[in-house]
Amino acid sequence: MARYLLKFTKTGNLRFISHLDVLRLFQRAFKRAEIKLNYSQGFNPHAKIGFAHPLSLGFESRAEYMDFETAFDNDTAELLEKLNGQMPEGMSLTGCTSLKETGRTAAAAAVTHADYRVVCRSAVDEEETAVWNERERVKRALDSFLGQGSIITTKYSKKKRRDVETDIRPSIISFEQSEGTDSPELRMRLLTGSNGNLNPQVLMTEFAKYAGKRFHPQNWIFVREEIYFTDRSGEVRPLNEFEG
């Protein structure tokens, strides 16, 4: 038995396939590549595959992570090559590392932060693009937005059947404009995982509301750039350095 962590991208049209679709895609890719996965025991056996952190439907990603368990030891470079030949356009594997066999923490449970890049699709809505192209104004708005002690959002909770207030300020580690891009673009590092979780679309909506700017999510591309874990010394490191 051996455990591995795979890093992959999800770009272009593939941003529209769901989490379950990705799982199915990998199960089939493993079979085509003739890599034997370990299956769970029980009534309905399923392959032991886990994803680090679900990506919202419609988001692209440069850094998705998946851990899996194989029946036999494999060479990581060989695994990568075999699997890459089975990927559709829009998905490519960028790294594969071994995890400790006895590691008890799944990659998913270790996730603490994620970086996102949000890009305006300039061609779609000229007015919206123009507003966000006023870089000085956006910068001032960002400064005062982040200067607030708390940023309260309300969201309807189906479970509690009422609006629930949340302070998202502690979940924002950084939030800034990208320099020197053609289209308006913002970058952010957000808490992600069980210790706090903020969706970049929620942040963008809140910020646009605060700054009085036009914002339609379908006119923007959301890209996850990296996922991080926090090691024992408290250092925030990319998930591909995670060892299990």
């Binding site: 049209n13 593939l14 529209f16 396939i17 769901s18 679709d21 439907l57 419609g58 559709p88 356009e89 829009g90 999510p217 379908q218």
Partner: peptide
């Protein structure tokens, strides 16, 4: 695609 149910049915590829 971002505005419809089951976008994968129009994707191809």
């Amino acid at each position: 695609l971002a505005q419809v149910d089951k976008p994968a049915s129009y994707m191809g590829g």
